[in-house]
């Protein structure tokens, strides 16, 4: 009996278990943090320091040269602009399309709508490589290779499944009676969507916005396939490109990675709640 009272969490002021747990979690956290810290450290050290194995020590002085190098490189702002030009429209468009489809699937179901929904949702699960070649051929025949258009289009289309799924699930929580009350008051479906369903779904929109923004910003495959010239690169392809230019300038590479990740990091830290919700909701309710 005495044994069990020790192991069961009680109201006792000091609990040795908690400390053990804390130490365990702390160690794991340190291990998990190490890679990220490495990049941080590299960005404020000179190449010499890194090469001499001083990457993993706490720096005495901060070296800003890497950041200056990155920020004065004329390509970097261009990469950023390109990424923004891709990410913002694709995020917004995919959410709009998802809202439209999700509304129909949750509030205006019809014979066969479940099948159509499943077909759209399954798009989430397939490796994008499956449609790589035909899309390349398609945009090539339109003369759009080496522009940002194909990237925007493809991300919009590939965002439809997750956006539709999340919006359908969210709209399903909006009571049918609200829609019906609005219709009795003279609203048509569009007005129900805009004035009733959408204002109630802002949390879901926030979830999707953070999710889509992060995915599209971080994507590497599509810009790699669709762009060729340096002026059209997005930041993630740009980093890989600049690796050649800064082949042993590890600090510059670190600074570059950091700057490239800044937007998603900010989105993540500020909208963490939505982000986690989106990841789990999209996954759990599939």
């Amino acid at each position: 009996m005495a044994e069990t009272t020790v192991s069961v969490p009680s109201v006792a002021p000091f609990n040795p278990w908690k400390v053990v747990l804390l130490i365990c979690v702390g160690c794991l956290a340190l291990l998990f943090l190490a890679p990220t810290v490495g990049v941080l450290l590299s960005s404020i050290k000179t190449t010499r320091e890194i090469a001499f194995g001083e990457l993993w020590t706490i720096p005495g002085t901060i070296y800003w040269g890497n950041f200056i190098e990155v920020l004065t490189n004329p390509s970097v702002p261009q990469y950023f602009l390109n990424t923004i030009f891709v990410t913002l429209p694709a995020t917004i468009l995919s959410i709009i399309l998802g809202v439209l489809a999700g509304y129909v699937f949750s509030k205006l179901p019809f014979a066969g709508s479940n099948l159509l929904f499943l077909v759209i949702i399954s798009g989430m699960f397939f490796p994008p490589q499956v449609i790589l070649i035909p899309l390349f051929q398609f945009f090539n025949s339109l003369g759009l290779i080496d522009t940002l258009w194909p990237i925007i289009c493809v991300h919009t289309a590939l965002g439809i499944p997750i956006c539709t799924l999340l919006m359908r699930n969210f709209f399903a929580t909006v009571p049918n009676a609200l829609r019906e009350a609005a219709i009795l008051e003279g609203a048509n479906e569009w007005q129900v969507l805009i004035r009733v369903a959408l204002p109630l779904s802002l949390p879901a929109i926030a979830v999707l916005a953070t999710l889509q923004f992060t995915w599209i910003w971080n994507d590497f495959l599509w810009p790699l396939i669709f762009t060729q010239s340096d002026e059209k690169r997005t930041i993630m392809v740009g980093i890989v490109n600049l690796k050649g230019q800064y082949s042993v300038a590890w600090g510059v590479q670190g600074a570059l990675s950091l700057i490239a990740s800044l937007p998603t990091l900010i989105v993540f830290l500020f909208f963490q709640r939505y982000f986690i919700k989106g990841m789990t909701m999209g996954a759990v309710k599939g």
Partner: peptide, 28 residues
């Protein structure tokens, strides 16, 4: 948050980070 943080990094950056971990001469 700490454990979850890497998910918001791009594969490019994660790859970069780990290349350095595995770097022969000064990798962690």
């Amino acid at each position: 948050t700490l454990f979850y943080l890497p998910i918001c990094l791009s594969a490019v950056v994660v790859g970069q980070i780990w290349i350095w971990i595995y770097q022969a001469d000064w990798g962690l």
